[in-house]
Simulated assay, not measured.
Amino acid sequence: MKNSVAFLFVLLLFVSCQQKIKTEDISKINGYWEIEKVVFEDGDDKDYKVNESYDYFEIGKDNSGFRKKVMPQLDGSFVVNNTQENVKVRFVEGQVFFDYVTSYAKWSEELIVVSEEKLVFKNTEDREYHYKKATPINILGDGKKTK
Rank of each mutant, 00 (worst) to 15 (best):
M1D: 13
V5D: 04
V5Q: 10
V5E: 08
F7M: 14
F7V: 11
F9L: 15
L11Y: 14
L12F: 13
L13E: 10
L13K: 07
F14V: 06
F14C: 06
C17S: 14
C17E: 14
C17A: 15
Q18Y: 07
Q19M: 14
K20T: 11
K20S: 06
I21H: 05
I21A: 08
I21V: 15
K22Q: 15
K22E: 10
T23E: 11
E24P: 01
E24N: 10
E24C: 06
D25C: 02
K28V: 00
I29F: 03
I29V: 11
I29Y: 00
N30S: 14
G31K: 00
W33M: 01
W33E: 00
I35L: 13
V38G: 01
V38W: 00
V39R: 02
V39N: 07
F40D: 03
E41N: 09
D42R: 05
D42L: 08
G43S: 04
G43D: 05
D44R: 04
D47K: 11
K49F: 12
K49H: 12
N51R: 13
E52S: 10
E52T: 08
S53F: 08
S53L: 06
Y54G: 03
Y54S: 04
Y56W: 05
Y56N: 07
F57I: 00
F57L: 05
F57C: 01
I59W: 04
K61P: 07
K61D: 14
K61R: 08
K61F: 03
D62T: 15
S64F: 03
G65C: 14
F66N: 06
F66P: 07
K68C: 11
K68N: 08
V70C: 11
M71T: 15
M71K: 14
M71P: 01
M71S: 15
Q73C: 09
Q73W: 00
D75E: 12
D75A: 05
G76S: 09
G76P: 10
S77N: 09
N81H: 03
N82D: 15
N82Y: 14
N82Q: 15
T83P: 00
T83V: 15
V87G: 02
V87F: 07
K88I: 12
V89P: 04
F91Q: 05
V92Q: 06
V92I: 13
E93C: 04
E93F: 03
Q95C: 04
V96F: 00
V96A: 03
F97A: 02
D99C: 05
Y100F: 15
T102C: 06
T102D: 03
A105M: 11
A105E: 14
K106I: 12
S108D: 05
E109F: 07
E110H: 05
I112F: 01
V113Y: 01
V113W: 00
V113M: 00
V114E: 03
V114P: 00
S115G: 08
E117Y: 06
L119Y: 03
L119I: 03
V120A: 02
K122L: 01
N123S: 02
N123K: 04
T124A: 10
T124N: 13
T124I: 09
E125C: 01
D126F: 06
D126Q: 05
D126S: 03
E128M: 10
E128V: 00
K133S: 05
A134Q: 08
T135K: 15
T135F: 12
P136L: 07
P136A: 12
I137K: 11
N138E: 07
I139T: 09
G141W: 10
G141V: 05
D142E: 13
K144G: 09
K145V: 12
T146H: 13
K147R: 14
